[in-house]
Simulated scan of single mutants.
Amino acid sequence: MDGWLVWLIVAAMLAVAEIFTLTAALAVLGGAALATAGFAAIGLPAPVQLLVFTVAATAGMLLVRPIALRHRGQSERWRFGVDALIGQTAHVTQEVTGTDGRVRIGGEEWTARAYDRTLVIPAGASVDVLEISGSTALVYPRE
């Protein structure tokens, strides 16, 4: 069997394995195997093919890993919908108790209740949104 075909099969197997693991490491190795298949197709000997694979895999890991780490920490910035409201400051427009109340979050009025059911939060107070349950904000006073 030709060397380029072996490297192509290895690249395909790594790509399939990456689909199941989602680690990005196997995708980098698959890309290195694919690059090595190209060099094997032009007739490079096996030791040089292994060197090409090693260099390509190392370069891929050195380039991809910092990018992946940088993007991993951005999940908090990209929240949307009601998830984006958690952690926001809200202003109480109608007294908030453990059962009912109203707050204004970013220009929208929401039904609310105190996260600690024993609290009574007066109108005009600032609160933090700790959770969204359905269409009700669970809040806790800032002071």
Rank of each mutant, 00 (worst) to 15 (best):
residue 41 A to S: 11
residue 37 A to I: 02
residue 93 T to D: 06
residue 2 D to N: 13
residue 60 G to D: 01
residue 107 G to H: 08
residue 12 A to F: 02
residue 37 A to P: 11
residue 31 G to H: 08
residue 59 A to G: 03
residue 82 V to P: 11
residue 98 G to C: 04
residue 90 A to W: 10
residue 80 F to I: 11
residue 99 T to Q: 15
residue 30 G to C: 01
residue 33 A to P: 08
residue 69 L to Y: 15
residue 124 G to Y: 01
residue 61 M to G: 11
residue 103 V to C: 08
residue 118 T to W: 07
residue 136 T to M: 03
residue 53 F to S: 02
residue 64 V to T: 05
residue 72 R to K: 15
residue 123 A to E: 05
residue 51 L to N: 06
residue 106 G to Y: 02
residue 39 F to I: 09
residue 138 L to D: 00
residue 39 F to D: 01
residue 33 A to G: 04
residue 19 I to V: 12
residue 104 R to I: 01
residue 21 T to C: 04
residue 122 P to V: 09
residue 73 G to D: 06
residue 52 V to C: 03
residue 140 Y to F: 15
residue 34 L to Y: 09
residue 107 G to E: 07
residue 141 P to Y: 06
residue 128 D to R: 13
residue 61 M to I: 08
residue 43 G to L: 11
residue 19 I to F: 13
residue 101 G to M: 04
residue 49 Q to K: 12
residue 99 T to M: 13
residue 53 F to W: 11
residue 17 A to M: 01
residue 91 H to K: 10
residue 93 T to Y: 03
residue 4 W to S: 01
residue 132 I to S: 14
residue 112 A to V: 00
residue 99 T to K: 13
residue 56 A to V: 00
residue 50 L to M: 09
residue 87 G to Q: 12
residue 98 G to M: 05
residue 128 D to M: 10
residue 57 A to R: 02
residue 26 L to G: 11
residue 73 G to E: 11
residue 41 A to K: 05
residue 17 A to R: 01
residue 74 Q to A: 14
residue 29 L to H: 01
residue 133 S to C: 06
residue 38 G to W: 13
residue 108 E to P: 07
residue 57 A to K: 06
residue 141 P to T: 01
residue 109 E to V: 06
residue 107 G to W: 07
residue 88 Q to L: 13
residue 86 I to W: 01
residue 19 I to Y: 07
residue 18 E to I: 12
residue 29 L to S: 00
residue 81 G to H: 03
residue 79 R to G: 14
residue 52 V to S: 04
residue 139 V to S: 03
residue 55 V to C: 14
residue 12 A to S: 10
residue 83 D to G: 10
residue 45 P to N: 10
residue 70 R to T: 01
residue 80 F to V: 10
residue 18 E to H: 11
residue 102 R to E: 00
residue 114 A to R: 10
residue 113 R to T: 00
residue 12 A to G: 07
residue 107 G to Y: 02
residue 143 E to N: 15
residue 123 A to C: 05
residue 28 V to Y: 05
residue 41 A to M: 13
residue 92 V to G: 04
residue 124 G to A: 09
residue 86 I to V: 15
residue 19 I to C: 13
residue 71 H to Y: 11
residue 126 S to R: 12
residue 14 L to Q: 00
residue 70 R to D: 03
residue 68 A to F: 13
residue 15 A to V: 09
residue 64 V to K: 09
residue 54 T to M: 10
residue 35 A to F: 14
residue 80 F to P: 01
residue 125 A to K: 12
residue 98 G to V: 02
residue 129 V to D: 00
residue 24 A to T: 07
residue 83 D to R: 12
residue 25 A to Y: 11
residue 75 S to N: 07
residue 128 D to L: 15
residue 99 T to R: 15
residue 78 W to Y: 14
residue 3 G to S: 14
residue 32 A to R: 10
residue 96 V to H: 04
residue 143 E to W: 15
residue 6 V to C: 14
residue 65 R to F: 09
residue 70 R to P: 02
